[in-house]
């Protein structure tokens, strides 16, 4: 940019203006407004309550509230389980579909379908599958003599049920990213390993995995942010219940904002989670820089 003169810079500014305006209206302004709300006692349903400045009271309430900390725990639990399985299964599938076998291209396309469905629809699909009385899942496990499981209506199973649906939807994402990375790897180191006689497991652990690392970290990061925000599937399947067994941070924010109508508390909770996500991002870039420096 050093050689761009002032006139060109002005022109560049003009071209950037629409984007900047859209960004401001759709992202920055709502965020600033939410920040403003987070310092106020703002109840949308009760205009008779004075919408006064309350300092950090909302943040204090959120951070000391049992339900919020509980929802945080649930969110990270769900994140841990879903990411683990999405990556184990997704990388496995990627290894499978990148084999040069007949029909793999078709299988790969089929496997991508869950990812292309809107999460709400995924929720509805799984609602049919989990439905206690008439669901497919219980029908099939009934065929092999297992008693019906109250998938989404018991505190023991509900989080598992949601994890299964989320794993089903997002494993293809991991598969796709990993498969693309696998195909860009040079084949020669593999041939070298074959000649040297390294076992498949050694080759996977010491040749494939380290080379996939940057891609896997990116995918992990994207999935982690998404998992942090998980909402749609839960909203459709359990709405956070039974009890508070599946109440994630997003559900908590929703409940504060649109059930109790406490927009201020909801906004404060949003900012707390924004900070958590930001910390995740920072850690991510730190680790990326580290692995880039090592090259």
């Amino acid at each position: 940019m050093g050689y761009v003169n002032r006139r060109n810079r002005t022109i560049a500014g003009v071209f950037l203006l629409p984007t900047a305006a859209v960004l401001f209206l759709t992202t920055i302004y709502p965020m600033l407004y939410a920040l403003y709300l987070s310092f106020r006692n703002y109840d949308l349903a009760k205009p008779f309550i004075p919408r006064i400045f309350v300092g950090l009271a909302n943040f204090q309430e959120v951070l000391t509230s049992g339900p919020f900390l509980h929802s945080m725990l649930i969110t990270f639990k769900l994140m841990g389980v879903t990411l683990f399985f999405q990556f184990v299964i997704g990388v496995g599938l990627a290894l499978l579909v990148t084999q040069r076998l007949p029909g793999m291209a078709a299988i790969r396309t089929l496997l991508l379908i869950p990812m292309m469905i809107s999460p709400v629809i995924v929720g509805l699909v799984w609602l049919f599958i989990y439905f206690p009385e008439l669901g497919y899942f219980n029908y099939f496990i009934g065929l092999i003599g297992i008693n019906p499981i109250p998938w989404i209506t018991s505190t023991q199973w509900a989080l598992t049920a949601i994890a299964i649906a989320d794993i089903w939807q997002w494993t293809p994402f991991v598969m796709m990213g990993t498969a693309a990375a696998l195909q860009s790897l040079s084949p020669e180191p593999y041939e070298a390993a074959r000649i040297d006689g390294n076992s498949n497991i050694d080759v996977f652990l010491h040749v494939t995995l380290p080379q996939l690392k940057p891609v896997l970290i990116s995918l992990l990061f994207l999935r982690a942010i998404d998992a942090f925000k998980i909402y749609d599937i839960i909203f459709v399947l359990t709405k956070g219940g039974p009890g508070d067994a599946t109440e994630t941070i997003a559900l908590y924010i929703y409940r504060q904002s649109f059930t109790f109508w406490r927009m201020g508390v909801g906004a404060a909770a949003s900012f707390v989670s924004l900070i958590i996500i930001s910390v995740l991002i920072t850690l991510f870039f730190k680790s990326m820089q580290k692995s880039a420096a090592a090259r």
Binding site: A192, P210, Q211, K213, R295
Partner: peptide, 8 residues
């Protein structure tokens, strides 16, 4: 292309 393991 040498076929070295780039991360080792």
């Amino acid at each position: 292309n040498y076929a070295l393991y780039p991360h080792m």
